[in-house]
Design a protein around this nucleic acid. Structure first.
Length: 952
RNA sequence: AGCUGAUUAGCUCAGCGGAAGAGCGUCUGUCUUACAAACAGAAAGUCGAAGGUUCGAAUCCUUCAUCGGCUACCA
């Protein structure tokens, strides 16, 4: 068989995905077993305009690993993929494009034409992210791909909006909101991020008090807002200002008389203790304004220029120019007391980084109280969803919910779900599922739809169920949208909701996770997912966050190119769950090397595979006997008495036993035991979402146990030139173990494992999980090894350990005594009867791996003085005669070194045993364990001392 | 300001009550018939500091230090 000397990831990555997809392996329908339990994950929908970054690659890897693992276990798996229309980002991008290509703004071409442009743009560029998802190897069901603006999902949005409105949980209100002057839209609190201003200043302005020479100084960071001041507030307890309360300020520049009021909100210690109040431009001032019934004077336009309320000098000026001018004017008037440097953090638009202007505006809001309570209730009652890691995210989630405020959902954009509200000529509002329904309510079709669209996260909040056909399209059954309370949910929704686990970053716990919980509870009546995995952040190699600004981002596609997708996936899955980690190419490199190791181990097996086949009974012969017994018993049908059973016991092994499957060597039983333990542990680790642990287990099983020891141990047998049953059995055994290992690795390394698995002799769909019997052969559908506890063989492991120790200590002596690799040596080993047998059984391997030409076993070896020595476990001793080669002084040092290490350990343990409290309180096994170890140390030390004496 | 997380070998990180691990790097050998992207061997850490709980602490508690994250406020 031709097989390349090194693994080339590209080939495997190009070949298999298309086949997997075409043959429908990703769709749940591939599962033929009606009794299969469902397992579902919805992908957090990336922005349709987006490109894959490391955060995606990480969460995608984790999700795909889980889905592939569960699919192989026979679950009916659905991995839902889709994209988000990402209102602001997409609109920004298309606007930029429009400007570049046609030198036009959206308003130049009008709403309808603009939206057409966005759709066209989406068709053209929106596929990028989905191509990248294919590149990652994600086993998502493309036949169910969704987009948040699909008709069905849009219907779900309107349905939810109308229902919330009808019960009074959506309302319109005039409030202080976060306004982005550049995008000219309102933003929710979560779309605003706080950033330190570069050179913040605190301006001290003096306001003259009417009918006096006195002035009150107020401090402000935004002097331009003084044009909209309608009061000055002080703390009622503040002695300094008590006399001023109730008097009047003559507001400079605008010549308006405003009152001096008292309010608890004002902190006397801060600034001057007197605060200018601008109810239309500050949330706190707004509150104070409400309490004192102050007028609200809006002084800004939507683009943050000053408006007509500010007078001729200011009108039309940008907010920062206005600020400058206000300060100058105050200076001219002699009313500018001082300007201090001041650290101030300002809200910025998450998308365009413009400084947010708080202003008063009419918007749509969702009242969250009821939904919030049910989410909190779910957590309290069922501790659901379960967060991984639980600390700190459960608390983060809960605390946020407890302090939840109403959600601003309208956006002054064109790209998105237009709000299903219509106005008649006199401004009455009609909220309905369709324009027709609104017209019916209104009694006229002369209606204008609300121009605003909904927050992108409004549709994302419904993702867990809107993608599964909540509006009825997948079922042929009646739609949930008909408005009839008794309508039934669709099949996908019934089967796959709630989903099993959500994998996401911590930045959207509030934006998305919590809202999905709330909407699913309300509209489906159940939680959207059981578990939430919060993964860490991938940082750059200096531990900094990756960002476009800093240009320190690492493009996953570059990494795929350089090291392969599988190596990248292993790197990502191998990072500790939930913890941030610094990206290092060296890490991927080591997994690239691992992939190559797997490739070459397989290559070795394949180069020696004539006469071999994958057959699980080679590593579990008892299972074959049991199966044959079952087959015969089934044939006999009628009552089977004890005699028959005895007969079966005798006959069955003969049917199975015409080959040497039963003749397992110590090394065979050892590797089978290791394999079983590994499989058990990998399953356990994945159950607990401990991906990195599973990765470590697989890495070390494959490289250390399988490659470094097992292959070396059976190499001679497998490469024997003469064909024989024995050789075929050995070849079948190793290839069967390899095949099991490939299955275990597949969820992490899908491409490599499929590529190699397909090359193995006699693989077929017989190896599939029973749920996929009629599918064409693929490792994707192979049964995931559960690990058989009955195949764990502690005796074989201990015996193999003794052999490994003998070889290792020999190698150690060779290296330390500078014995040339080509020089053969003799091994004199003294050991008890049992160990002698073990060593004898592995003589050939010991000689080969230790580069020795002689293994001399005895109860008590009579080694020449000129020998290098080592003590072994179980009271055994190794001596290597080195006449003429040995440096006695050096050998003495070696032995003294060993002795001192043992003595240090021995002393520590002795001390522990001397402690009455320890012996009485520690578990008996622990105490025994230490006693055993002390006994061994004592024996080994004695031997070493004897050897030393002999040398001196 | 509040709440959180981290601090373990030169680097990146596991381990989270029974006594120190990995990968990379370093040093020494080696083309030993799958793999030099490899093989064999070795060196390297009073587990941030100080107290406490415990028979026993890297692991639990308290305080401190340094570095992150989140939330809120900021006239």
């Amino acid at each position: 068989m031709e097989i390349a000397k090194a693994y080339n990831p590209k080939e495997a990555e190009e070949n298999h995905y298309r086949i997997w997809e075409e043959r429908g392996y990703f769709a749940p329908e591939i599962n033929e077993n009606d009794a299969s339990k469902p397992y579902s994950i919805v992908i957090p929908p990336p922005n349709v305009t987006g490109n894959l970054h490391m955060g995606h690659a990480l969460q995608h890897t984790l999700m795909d690993t889980l889905v592939r693992w569960k699919r192989m276990q026979g679950y009916k798996t659905l991995f839902i993929v889709g994209t988000d229309h990402a209102g602001i980002s997409t609109q920004l991008m298309v606007t930029r494009q429009l400007k570049k290509d046609e030198h036009k703004s959206p308003t130049d071409i009008g709403r309808e034409a603009f939206i057409e442009k966005v759709w066209a743009w989406k068709e053209k560029y929106g596929g990028e992210i989905t191509r990248q998802i294919r590149r990652e190897g994600l086993s998502v069901d493309w036949s169910r791909e969704r987009f948040t603006m699909d008709e069905n999902l849009s219907r779900a949005v309107r349905e939810v909006f109308v229902r919330l409105y009808e019960e009074g949980n959506i309302y319109r209100g005039n409030r202080i909101v976060n306004w982005c002057p550049r995008d000219k839209t309102v933003l929710s609190d979560l779309e605003v991020k706080e950033e330190k201003a570069k050179d913040g200043k605190l301006y001290y302005l003096q306001y003259p008090v009417k009918n006096s020479d006195e002035k009150i100084t107020v401090a402000t960071t935004r002097p331009e807002t003084m044009l909209g001041d309608t009061a000055v507030a002080v703390n009622p307890e503040d002695e300094r200002y008590r006399a001023f309360i109730g008097r009047t300020i003559e507001l400079p520049l605008v010549n308006r008389e405003i009152p001096i009021i008292a309010d608890e909100y004002v902190e006397s210690e801060f600034g001057t203790g007197a605060v200018k109040i601008t109810p239309a431009h500050d949330p706190n001032d707004y509150e104070i304004g409400q309490r004192h019934d102050l007028p609200q004077i809006n002084v800004m336009n939507k683009d943050a220029t000053m408006n007509e309320n500010t007078g001729k000098e200011f009108e039309g000026l940008d907010r920062y120019d206005a600020r400058q001018l206000v300060v100058e004017k105050f200076e001219e008037l002699g009313l500018l007391e001082k300007i201090d440097d001041y650290d101030v953090t300002l809200p910025h638009c998450e998308r365009c980084n413009t400084v947010i202007e708080p202003l008063l505006s009419e918007q749509w809001f969702v009242k969250m109280d009821d939904m919030r309570d049910s989410a909190l209730d779910l957590m309290r009652r069922e501790k659901s969803p379960r967060f991984f890691p639980e600390v700190p995210y459960e608390k983060v989630y809960t605390t946020w919910l407890e302090n939840l405020k109403d959600w601003t959902i309208s956006r002054q954009l064109w790209w998105g779900h237009q709000i299903p509200a219509w106005y008649d000529a006199s401004g009455n509002v009609f909220v309905a599922r369709t324009k027709e329904a609104a017209a019916e309510q209104a009694g006229t079709s002369d209606l204008i739809q609300d121009a605003d669209v909904l927050d992108t996260w409004f549709s994302s909040a419904l993702w867990s169920f809107s993608t599964l056909g909540w509006t009825g399209e997948n079922s042929g059954q009646r739609s949930a949208v008909s408005g009839q309370k008794d309508s039934k949910p669709s099949t996908d929704l019934e089967t796959f909701h709630p989903t099993d686990v959500l994998v996401t970053g911590r930045d959207i716990i509030f934006l998305w996770v919590s809202r999905m919980v709330m909407t699913a509870l309300k509209f489906v009546g159940e939680k959207p997912f059981s578990d939430v995995i919060i993964h860490g952040t991938v940082l750059d190699k200096n531990g900094q966050r990756m960002s476009k600004m800093k240009l320190n981002g690492i493009d996953p596609l570059d990494v795929f190119e350089k090291f392969g997708v599988d190596a990248t996936r292993m790197t990502l899955a191998g990072s500790s769950t939930g913890a941030d980690f610094a990206w290092r190419d060296e890490k991927v490199e080591s997994f690239r090397n691992f992939a190559n190791k797997i490739w070459n181990a397989t290559r070795f097996c394949l180069l020696n595979s004539e006469g071999a086949q994958v057959d699980y009974f080679y590593i579990n012969p008892k299972a074959e006997v049991a199966e044959i017994k079952n087959l015969i018993r089934d044939e006999l049908i009628d009552d089977i008495d004890e005699e028959d059973e005895e007969f079966l016991d005798k006959v069955a092994p003969e049917f199975a036993g015409d080959n040497p499957k039963e003749n397992l060597s110590i090394a065979d039983r050892w590797i089978i035991s290791r394999l079983s333990k590994t499989a058990l542990s990998v399953n356990r680790a994945l159950d607990a979402y401990q991906f990195h642990e599973a990765v470590q287990l697989l890495y070390h099983f494959f490289w250390d146990d399988f490659c470094d020891w097992y292959i070396e141990f059976v190499k001679d047998e497998i490469t024997a030139e003469e064909p024989s049953n024995r050789r075929d059995a050995a070849r079948s055994r190793i290839i069967t173990i390899l095949e099991q290992a490939l299955r275990l690795l597949h969820p992490f390394m899908p491409f490599l494992t499929e590529e190699l698995w397909q090359k193995l002799p006699a693989v077929s769909s017989d190896l599939h999980n029973p749920a996929y019997k009629s599918a064409e052969q693929t490792i994707m559908l192979a049964d995931f090894p559960r690990g058989d506890a009955a195949l764990i063989d502690e005796k074989a492991e201990a015996e193999m350990q003794a052999v490994i120790e003998l070889i290792s200590k020999t190698r150690n002596i060779r290296a330390e005594m500078n014995i040339k690799p080509s020089d053969k040596i003799s091994l004199l080993v003294s050991a008890g009867e049992t160990l002698q047998k073990v060593f004898a059984a592995n003589e050939a391997q010991i000689l080969k791996l230790a580069r020795a030409n002689e293994l001399n076993l005895s109860e008590k070896a009579d080694a020449p003085k000129a020998s290098a020595r080592a003590v072994l476990a179980g009271g055994a001793e190794l001596a290597i005669p080195l006449e003429g080669l040995i440096d006695f002084q050096k050998e003495i040092e070696r032995l003294e070194n060993q002795l001192s290490k043992l003595e240090i350990e021995g002393e520590r343990l002795q001390k522990q045993l001397a402690n009455q409290n320890f012996v009485e309180r520690a578990p008996a096994e622990k105490v025994q364990e230490i006693r055993d170890r002390v006994a061994e140390i004592t024996q080994q030390s004695a031997t070493l001392r004897q050897n030393l004496d002999a040398l001196r």
